[in-house]
Amino acid sequence: MKRSRLRFWLFLAPALISFIIVVVIPVIIGFYYSTTNWDGVNMNPKLIGFDNFTRMFTNDPDFLRAFLFTSGIAVVTVVLVNAIGLALAMFVMQKFKGANLLRSVIFMPNLIGGLLLGFTWNFIFTNIFSSIGTALNWEFLDGWLSNSETGFIGIIVLNVWQMSGYMMIIYIAQLQNIPDSIKEAAKIDGANWFQTLRGVTLPLVMPAFSIGLFLSISNSFKMFDQNLALTKGGPYHSTEMLALNIYNSAFTSHEFGYAQAKAIVFLVLVASVGLAQLIFTKKREVEM
């Protein structure tokens, strides 16, 4: 078929132009600004070399704390969300009345925006918890989200509530690919439930497991809205995650150049998680 170059570029143009203006150019000038003392107003900031980068690793306890806090959230979320997601998937795949309804209900929180989720749980942790605590005289229900420990648990609970349903449907998609005959064969061979789970179900569900793993890590790392609405990073930046820390550097301290340098480090972190996933899943595809 005759193909003209003109047609190629004509059809690409709208996507390419908007993509270049919105993503490519900002990424490039972002690298430049990360080496300046840009304040967001002055259009001719001074070049300061790698000062921003050395500062964040040597002289910024809040940034390091945000990094550790975010990593902690990511690790706990990954474990809980995937374990619960897989258990829920296996549960709703039992054929009983109401299984489909339950599946829909569990998946729903995933679609609600992060701000709405954050504010909702803020209400529950601060108001509902304290009033249950007062009624039952349980002191541990008082003062939630007022320190970093309860803030941490709060974010974890929100994540589990939001993401388990998503992990569940990913595992369901994978579990549906396992032919019944394999399970029946295991049963005929006398395998009990646990042996079937370990020897048949888990190995066959591995591809979905790697997806669930990386998806929940990168979602936890990139989390912003939920953090902003639930704890706002407080008290005293102790529940601030990386994305919010970058945001505050820019819009609270007006250090745009410094915030941009942090954003570059953030890019490296998030991109390595993503690349690791790509390599991992590609390797798996070859093996399968």
């Binding site: 190629f8 690409l12 390419l16 993509f19 203006i21 919105v22 993503v23 490519v24 150019i25 900002p26 990424v27 000038i29 972002g30 600004y33 967001g40 790392f221 990139k222 912003f224 994305a243 970058i246 945001y247 820019a250 745009f256 915030a259 941009q260 954003a263 570059i264 953030f266 890019l267 998030v270 991109a271 993503g274 690349l275």
Partner: peptide, 27 residues
């Protein structure tokens, strides 16, 4: 060209929003 452009689209999915936010405001 088509291979390269497709590769750039795929790679760009790794870029978090925070990384382009501030320069984008200026643009």
């Amino acid at each position: 060209a088509s291979k390269f452009i497709f590769g750039v689209f795929a790679l760009s999915m790794l870029v978090p929003f925070q990384c382009v936010m501030l320069p984008l405001m200026m643009v």
